[in-house]
C-alpha cells in the first residue's frame, strides 16, 4: 500500500437526496461553494442509498486514500460504510456534518487543504 499521508485529500459530498434530512439551504450552499472552488470532487446522491444497495463505489471511497466527507453525523456515516461491508479506514477520513454545521463552516473544512482534522470536524475513528 502506498503512503497517502502527503497526498491531498479528496472531497466527497453527499446530497442526502432520498430523504432530505440535511437542511436544503446548507447542502445547496455547500454544493455551490464546492462547485466554485476550482477543486475536483465527487458527489453522490445519498450515502444511505449506497449502503442499502452495497454500492461498489463505497469500496473506492473507503480505499482511495485521504478523504473529507460532507454528509451527516460521523457515527452514522462510519457505520453506514461498515454496514455495506466497506469499513472506512481508521486514519485519513474526516466527516463534516451538514446537519449541524453552517454551510460556511462545512465548506471551510472541506476546502482547507492543510488540515486533516479540525476541532469541529470528526475523524470517524474518534469516539463522540
Amino acid at each position: 500500500m502506498t503512503d497517502s499521508s502527503h497526498q491531498p485529500h479528496r472531497i466527497l459530498y453527499c446530497r442526502c437526496a432520498y430523504a432530505n434530512t440535511v437542511p436544503q439551504g446548507v447542502k445547496d450552499d455547500v454544493l455551490q461553494r464546492l462547485s466554485e472552488s476550482g477543486l475536483p470532487f465527487e458527489a453522490v446522491s445519498d450515502l444511505c442509498e449506497m449502503s442499502a444497495s452495497r454500492d461498489p463505489r463505497l469500496k473506492q471511497i473507503a480505499e482511495g486514500g485521504r478523504v473529507k466527507i460532507a454528509a451527516c453525523y460521523p457515527r452514522a456515516v462510519k457505520w453506514l460504510f461498515h454496514a455495506a461491508g466497506q469499513p472506512l479506514p481508521e486514519e485519513g477520513v474526516d466527516v463534516v456534518n451538514m446537519r449541524e454545521l453552517s454551510a460556511e463552516d462545512v465548506a471551510a473544512q472541506l476546502l482547507d487543504r492543510n488540515t486533516e482534522s479540525t476541532p469541529s470536524s470528526h475523524p470517524v475513528n474518534h469516539a463522540e
Binding site: Q7, R15, L39, P40, F41, E42, V44, S45, Q60
Partner: peptide, 21 residues
C-alpha cells in the same frame, strides 16, 4: 444528484476519486 445520479467533477491536474470497475 436530486434525481439519484452520482457525479464526479474532474479538473485539470486534479486528483479524483477513482472510478470503480
Amino acid at each position: 444528484l436530486d434525481k439519484g445520479f452520482a457525479v464526479a467533477l474532474a479538473k485539470e491536474g486534479g486528483r479524483q476519486i477513482p472510478t470503480p470497475p
